[in-house]
Design a protein around this nucleic acid. Structure first.
Length: 378
DNA sequence: TCACCTGACACCTTTGAACTGC
DNA sequence: AGCAGTTCAAAGGTGTCAGGTG
């Protein structure tokens, strides 16, 4: 059991800059939608499975936004950065530091598939990053976020005012993160409490719930149960006969499908095709869990409160610098070179990273040393 | 021996096309 | 013809296990 009172478990996040920053155009608020779920994982010590082919996060990142300019275009992106510079190991039922972290794998960013969209659309509904996947495969070609196993990370959310993901370097941006979203990347679950919690809350893990069909501990892997590879239908019929349950569409399935269709058609009619609905479905399944999900709505004023408050970075103007009253002593912000480079860090990116690190923070785990988007995932 | 990683597996949900009835 | 609801197969996501690796 990790000791969360240990200062190492606290994020070494820089304090937010003053809201009086002259580039502060608006007061964007970000809410972590399933924060209660995140917290319940966080109290145990969240673990996220990473696999060669990519694994979704659970809990997944789901946020809502307010304070955007209704008619301005925004790109929303997520990256995942180290929470500290340690490598961990699971020993005697708890996490222990196992040395210094390994070199950062190729840094990647996940752009929300609906980007770009106008502020009113982003604020219309919560947005989920359900489809973002984590991998430990440094040669991954699918654009998944690459992480090291046994290292601790946290997601950062970037709200960038830009007309296209290709022009994000010209837009102003704000960065948010939530302390309860810190997790340890693992290739197999270490803490059985996490497994239990995931099974209880993740619909895809329903089969492993106690009282479910054939829980794996009792499951037979031998040919007694499955002499040959069965077709899906065969498997279903076996499943049904085992459980005595009739295979029926889930209660809300049809209704949902109907709703979705109606919604899409209406959107088409009105010409306002909001691209949100498909991704919302899965998050809805989480929201229907019997957890009391108390949403945290963090305002600009609240951001300094330490417990479970998001960190919001200063809104930096991006390249080219506007001709406003910017403090000349402030570290120059280099234009991110993601548009020039591809997957790996380029010299320019390293410069960019270096300037941030020098100019603002000295902690090696600091957020600012990681380039925003050297690689885009589409 | 130990800690960690990997691939196969069974079971589940989600998705979307096809179908049916009004 | 258009719409809403239903059914079903396929795709894809899940945790677990055994075996491999260092």
């Amino acid at each position: 059991m990790p000791n969360f009172s240990d200062p190492r478990w606290n994020l070494s996040m820089p304090l937010s800059s003053s809201a009086t920053n002259s580039y502060q155009q608006s007061c964007i608020q970000m809410t972590l939608e399933n924060s209660e779920l995140w917290k319940s994982f966080h109290t145990i010590g969240t673990e996220m499975i990473i696999t060669k082919h990519g694994r979704r996060m659970f809990p997944h990142c789901s946020i809502s936004l307010s304070g955007l300019q209704p008619f301005a275009n925004y790109v929303i992106m997520v990256d995942i950065v180290p929470a500290d510079n340690f490598k961990y190991k699971w020993k005697k039922k708890q996490w222990e530091v196992a040395g210094k972290s390994e070199p950062q794998p190729p840094f990647r960013t996940y752009i929300h598939p609906n980007s770009p969209a106008v502020g009113s659309q982003w604020m219309e509904q919560s947005l989920s990053f359900l489809k973002m996947k984590l991998t430990n495969n440094t040669l991954d070609q699918h654009g998944h976020i690459i992480l090291h196993s046994m290292h601790r990370y946290y997601p950062r959310f970037h709200v960038i005012q830009a007309d296209s993901p290709h022009t994000v370097s010209w837009g102003s941006f704000q960065t948010f993160s939530f302390p309860e979203t810190v997790f340890t990347a693992v290739t197999a679950y270490q803490n059985p409490k996490i497994t239990r919690l995931k099974i209880d809350h993740n619909p895809f893990a329903k089969g492993f719930r106690e009282g479910g069909t054939h829980s794996h501990s009792k499951r037979c892997r031998s040919n007694k149960c499955s002499p040959t590879k069965k077709s899906t239908q065969d498997k279903k019929s076996i499943c049904n006969s085992e459980t005595g349950l009739q295979r029926m569409p889930s209660p809300s399935q049809s209704a949902q499908a109907g709703k979705k269709r109606a919604w899409t058609q209406q959107s088409l009619k009105t010409g306002h095709l909001s691209p949100w609905a498909p991704e919302q479905d899965s998050s809805e399944s989480i929201h229907t869990e019997p957890l009391e999900l108390q949403e945290h709505n963090y305002s600009c004023e609240e951001q300094m409160v330490p417990a479970y408050q998001p960190y919001r970075s200063v809104e930096y103007p991006r390249f080219p610098l506007p001709t406003t009253n910017r403090d000349p002593t402030e570290t120059p912000i280099h234009a991110p070179s993601h548009l020039l480079s591809t997957m790996e860090h380029s010299t320019q990116q390293q410069e960019y990273r270096h300037s941030y690190q020098q100019g603002h923070h000295s902690n090696p785990a600091d957020w600012s040393q990681y380039p925003l988007f050297p690689y885009s995932c589409w």
